[in-house]
Amino acid sequence: MMWETAILIGLLFGAACFLILQASFVRILFGFILLSNAANLFVLAMSGRPDGKSAPIVGVAGAAPVDPLPQALILTAIVIGFGVIAYLVILLYRTFLDQRTASARELFDPARERPEEEQA
């Protein structure tokens, strides 16, 4: 299981980096979602080899349970990631409405001029 997990984490990080470096807002957003999932998976992998172990639930008989702490950690990290991604969605949406573009390249184009204030 460890090799598969390692390759999966690597793929997720690679895909996330590729997407974040694109210009389109939607791709950047998906890149960050993948990035947080890759990190969560990495932490999960720290609970060790899961082969032949049971889930860490009180009262479930059977083999030795896996280390539950990384699962508690990623639960926290998922909740935090949920909040941050929700904020990112709204930030990108508002940037799109305010600046009339969905491309980061265009957004930070130095040739873009600040529009004149209406009252000035």
């Binding site: 508002r94 799109f96 409405l97």
Partner: peptide
């Protein structure tokens, strides 16, 4: 927090933002 900013573009006379992009 976000009630005001999101609709800000609708305040001006300009057409809805989707049309511009």
């Amino acid at each position: 927090p976000l009630e005001e900013p999101i609709e800000k573009t609708a305040r001006s006379e300009s057409p809805a933002p989707e049309d511009d992009v």
